[in-house]
Amino acid sequence: MKPIEIQNATYFVRNSGTVHQILANSTTAADPGWYLLSGSSRLHTIAFLDLLCGKSELQNGFCRIRGNISWPIGRMGVFSSVVTGINAISHFSILYGFDRNFGIEFVKEHLGQYELLWKPIVNWPTQIKLKFSLLLALVADFDIYLIDTNLAFPEDVDFSRNIIGLLRAKAKAKTVLLTPKQTQVVKAICTKAIVVADQKATITDNINEALAINNSKPINIGSINETAEIDADDGLLF
């Protein structure tokens, strides 16, 4: 029983009006372990994370996830930015089934500037948002962690040391997928790599090779225009 299993997967995504094929009849399975997730472009990495967290579905084949999987930690969209940190913890406690008060205490203890928890997230510095995101992921109990953010914060060594310690304790013998935001970190921490390139997802032990493939064929990623979707209402009464 492998935590991530992909069979005969055909997977397309759309970006800036263009359709890209990410996987073509690809089959792979990942054992528990700490993986570097490397895509031939950032689009491939994002699309693969979308597939794993269930945001997108395959057009053909199947992707089976066994166990609880995290959201792609580091994506800020999951926080409705206008809510306060406390509201966000309540929301996450409902979605992931952890105790709200424990979550608040845990974040207060490790975040440092805990007084920010009562202020809207939109006003927080980016680094604090990333730290908050990591801490929330550590409160919940996951079998698969998708990490799309920095693990090392050069301006806050203590926090970095705490977070790696906590993550190691929490994700011991579990599956962690880490995108190569910080090469030094992934080289030290990852023992295997999932490479999404040439319409295939493959697993390799060669981290350096995987890092060389990462973003080797960059695609210009446009942000999607959601206004057309949001403003389905034309504002008229009838």
């Binding site: 029983m1 492998k2 066994r66 079998d143």
Partner: peptide, 23 residues
């Protein structure tokens, strides 16, 4: 924390994926 030659290397006491658990 991520330098294997440093005394503060975060993975000094073994890598966290050394044991495997069924999902």
């Amino acid at each position: 924390l991520y330098d294997p030659n440093s005394p503060y290397f975060a993975l000094n006491d073994g890598h966290p994926d050394t044991k495997t658990a069924p999902p």
